[in-house]
């Protein structure tokens, strides 16, 4: 565990909690892509199956359970409790266009051809693109609430910090995982455009809105 990895995990946790609190406090999930949240729940579910097979550390187990619990709570709030506020008309990204190719790729490119390993690989690939329905929704409506942009920023920071963590681990622990690194780079690149808008608009106190 290094400082970048810890900061990345905490940034991820902050993102998840900011989103949950936003929905809970405003009693509304307007502007939030339910599809992205379902994809994230699927990511955590397929990745953390090792909770049942091997123990790594109390930190590892507790964080996995929190991520899983929060992901399902978020999906529940969007599709059940505050369903009336869900903006389904704008959440039109075809999630199967992500899940199917990513599933195929996980079968073809993995560390080991075993069910758990393929599911883990699937989760890594899926996570890298799971935010696309949310970004698509923002580009479609042309705007995002400020709190939603904080959520996205924390989520993007988590990935960027993990990249630094991998560079660290490569130099100091001789450790690298090519699948995670390539997927992590793709995921971070997807946020670059958003980072630019966040820094030039939201941090200047303006609402994030895109030119028509």
């Amino acid at each position: 565990m290094n400082i970048f990895r810890l900061a990345g995990d905490l940034s991820h946790l902050a993102a998840i909690i900011v989103l949950l609190l936003k929905i809970w406090k405003t009693r509304s999930c307007a502007g939030i892509s339910g599809k992205s949240q379902i994809l994230f729940a699927l990511v955590f579910t397929t990745r953390y199956l090792d909770l049942f097979t091997n123990f790594i550390s109390p930190y590892n187990t507790v964080m996995k359970m929190i991520y899983l619990g929060c992901a399902y709570a978020t999906v529940y709030l969007i599709y059940m409790k505050f369903k009336a506020t869900y903006d389904g008309n704008h959440d039109t990204f075809r999630a199967e266009f992500l899940v199917v190719p990513v599933g195929g790729l996980a079968f073809l490119v993995n560390h080991e051809f075993s069910p758990l390993e393929i599911l883990w690989t699937f989760s890594i690939y899926l996570e890298s693109v799971a935010i696309l329905p949310q970004l698509f929704m923002i580009s479609k409506t042309g705007e995002a609430e400020t709190i939603t942009t904080h959520y996205l920023f924390a989520l993007g920071m988590y990935r960027a910090l993990y990249l630094i963590n991998w560079i660290w681990r490569y130099y100091f622990e001789n450790f690298f995982d090519l699948i995670a690194i390539v997927a992590g780079c793709v995921q971070t690149i997807l946020y670059c455009d958003f980072f630019y808008l966040y820094i030039t608009k939201v941090l200047q106190g303006k609402k994030l809105s895109l030119p028509a």
Partner: peptide
């Protein structure tokens, strides 16, 4: 440098 799965990461 050995490549190995990063299962300790979240």
């Amino acid at each position: 440098t050995a490549e190995m799965p990063s299962k300790d990461e979240l």
